[in-house]
Design a protein around this nucleic acid. Structure first.
Lengths: 168, 168
DNA sequence: AAGATATGTCAGCTTTGTTGACATATTTTT
DNA sequence: AAAAATATGTCAACAAAGCTGACATATCTT
């Protein structure tokens, strides 16, 4: 360690360390830290599931999202996808091109509006999307194991309530 | 558009387009797409809340996580933090250094083991962490609005069940 | 014919993660 | 006391995936 500076020492008073908080942040009960942290850990573990599979194809999480939504709504246009993912077209272009070049997605010129590029999964694209969804769905099933149908509905209500209003 | 290649045309047969899936992926009911997608949209919107605040300080989401957990458990060591966040120390070092240099976090040499660096939030660090948690907690409160205490407990159960087992 | 729209592409930048290697202070083990 | 292990820091290089700005092309609309 070169710069042993800015490492405060014991004595709380002579060096401004008295400004420090030694007590855990509670928010006086007004902040729901349990959910904030639970959501963080849950989502992190949730998206880690597909990573091993993606690595085999040399893809990342951005590819995952694209291949997922194209499979969920075949024929969606590039504009649709941008709207769903809320990223820029330059960001999308990179991963979409790789998925097309690798044969997981194909583009078809729109039948009415030929400027559009309608996106469809190939057989390989469908298989990849299913393979990626499977471990995630297993994880959900595990979390749902001891839950009634009503309780599962509560989870859906929660996830919906956490989302921004749709802008249509 | 230069390369007008690899844009398939109408006729489904003469060009391999017959391989495409035109039907939405259902997973034959074995995949819980509703939760998969709800979780994705909910988490994305959830972490977008603090972004505006972070921008003012010139910080990003990585800083958010660090300042959050240091506030939640003052006196935690660098190793503790690495274990919580599951990132490499080089990744952590970058953002931690910025938070220390900006006066949001301070380090104190461990009283027993002086190799350790115990991390404490300053007053500004505490305020920042609270400011970041507030909009997230408001969003949670909104999602919980119509829910009973039991139903809220179901959500906690879900988020816990989605997490990997603790490795201790 | 002119303008708007959908898409693609080039170039460069930022944040945040990664690996590998090595330095220093301190504690533990031999 | 010497050696090894541990906690932390740091340098360098790289990768994924986001961003902005600018500009090109094909097609549709006015």
């Amino acid at each position: 360690m070169k710069g042993n500076d800015n490492v405060a020492r014991q004595m709380p008073d002579r060096n401004g360390v008295s400004e420090l908080h030694h007590d855990a942040m509670t928010g006086d009960g007004r902040i729901d830290f349990e959910i904030i942290e639970g959501f963080f850990f849950a989502y992190r573990d949730f998206i880690s599931d597909p990573d091993a599979i993606l690595e085999k194809s040399g893809f990342g999480r951005a590819h995952h999202r694209v291949v997922h939504f194209v499979n969920r709504e075949p024929g969606m246009t590039v504009a649709d996808l941008l709207d769903t993912l809320k990223i820029t077209k330059q960001s999308l272009a990179r991963v979409l091109k790789q998925l097309i070049d690798s044969g997981y997605i194909q583009q078809v010129a729109g039948p009415e509006d030929r400027r559009q590029r309608k996106l469809y999964p190939t057989r390989a694209g469908r298989e990849l999307a299913l393979a990626l969804a499977e471990p995630q769905s297993r994880r959900i099933a595990r979390a749902f194991e001891a839950m009634s149908a009503d309780e599962r509905q509560v989870v859906i209500q929660f996830l919906t309530g956490m989302q921004n209003a749709k802008s249509e």
